[in-house]
Simulated scan of single mutants.
Amino acid sequence: MPSLRHDLLATLIPKVRKSRDLDTEPAERARVEAWHRTLDRSLPVRATPGFRKKWDVEVADIGFPSYVLTPRSGRVHRTLYYVHGGGYMAPIDAFHVRYATRLAAAIGARIVMPDYPLAPEHTWADSHDALVADAAHWAGEDGGAVLAGDSAGGGLALAMALSMRDRGLAPATSLVMHAPWVDLTTSTPETHDVDAIDPWLFIGKLQAYAGWWAGSPDDLGRPEVSPALADLAGLPRALMLHGTRDLLHPGCRLLVRRAAEAGWDLTSIEEPDLIHVYGLLPLTPESARAFRQVVEFVR
């Protein structure tokens, strides 16, 4: 049974973020594009106490900014390559930075966090090759790289792992995905049923954002966009965490089935009645448990 704190956040977060389904796709596109013109794309660190004292930040240019965060303690044994979520249309959030710094500190890692171009102005094709090459570079460094992401970022991390495999590049040591968006075709019929119980995500927006990121209906099913539909054999060992009050969880279950068919070592933790990316929520027993599970897995 979910904790009271989880259920409180499940009520508050959609209200704070003014979550609602779209009116029309053109209106949503215009809204998002107008919002993008106002964005400050600097790294948001306000949710991370003592950030400036604990982390040095460099900005690499890989065709777009990629933040490299190094702990001032000097205790670096590997890299955490973290790909942020946000429906492919939202930038890095302060809670992405908070989570990544906590995880990196626990496993002795630097952080690489790419600020990839956003939809609808951009599609997967504008960043995929650069992300794959950059992740493979860090995977080839001493200690290797843990490839991780949440929501859209979790799906993108899986798509990157597929391309790293197919191109014969250095693989990540492991893959961690929080409620990844892995099937942008929405081919799982259960998705429409879950739409009625998810307080945060909405099917209309899911379909609009998927179309923007794909760029073309013909590209919705390709591995770079919907990695759950690809050949999953030969990927790094992976951990996936998701709840059942999440519009993306039918896609996560699809990934579990296809992983078993491919013989891919995927550990799936499904939590009843928990919301989208519950593992990144602040100060809940469920997120604390998820954090321990991730640290144990990647250690």
Rank of each mutant, 00 (worst) to 15 (best):
S3K: 01
R5Y: 04
R5E: 12
D7F: 11
L8C: 06
T11F: 15
I13C: 07
I13G: 08
V16L: 15
K18V: 07
R20H: 14
D23V: 10
D23Y: 09
T24R: 01
E25S: 05
E25T: 14
A27L: 14
V32K: 06
V32Y: 09
E33K: 13
H36G: 01
V45T: 15
T48S: 14
T48W: 12
V57A: 08
E58P: 05
E58W: 12
V59A: 11
D61L: 13
G63A: 10
P65C: 07
S66E: 14
S66N: 09
Y67H: 15
L69Q: 07
L69R: 11
L69K: 06
T70R: 14
T70H: 04
G74M: 10
H77L: 12
T79F: 10
L80P: 03
L80Y: 02
Y81F: 15
Y81R: 06
Y82N: 02
H84R: 10
Y88K: 05
M89G: 12
P91A: 15
D93G: 12
F95E: 08
A104F: 00
A106F: 05
G108T: 01
R110G: 00
M113H: 09
M113L: 13
M113A: 05
Y116D: 11
Y116N: 06
Y116P: 05
E121M: 09
W124G: 07
D126E: 01
H128G: 10
A130D: 09
A130R: 14
D134L: 08
A139E: 02
D142M: 04
D142K: 14
G144R: 11
A148F: 08
A148Q: 02
G155F: 14
L158T: 03
L158R: 04
A159R: 04
M160N: 09
G168N: 09
T173R: 15
W181H: 10
V182T: 15
L184M: 12
T185H: 01
S187F: 07
T188H: 11
E190Q: 14
D193S: 12
I197S: 10
I203R: 02
L206Q: 03
A208S: 03
A210K: 09
A210Y: 03
S216L: 02
S216E: 01
D218I: 01
L220Q: 00
V225H: 00
V225N: 00
P227G: 12
P227L: 13
A228P: 04
L229D: 00
A233V: 07
L235D: 08
P236N: 03
A238R: 06
L239G: 04
H242Y: 15
D246Y: 09
L248S: 08
C252P: 03
R253C: 13
R257M: 10
A262P: 10
S268G: 13
S268K: 08
E270W: 01
E270R: 02
H276R: 08
H276D: 10
V277D: 11
G279K: 03
P285A: 05
S287K: 02
S287T: 03
R289C: 07
A290I: 00
R292S: 14
V294S: 00
V294M: 03
F297A: 04
V298A: 04
V298F: 04
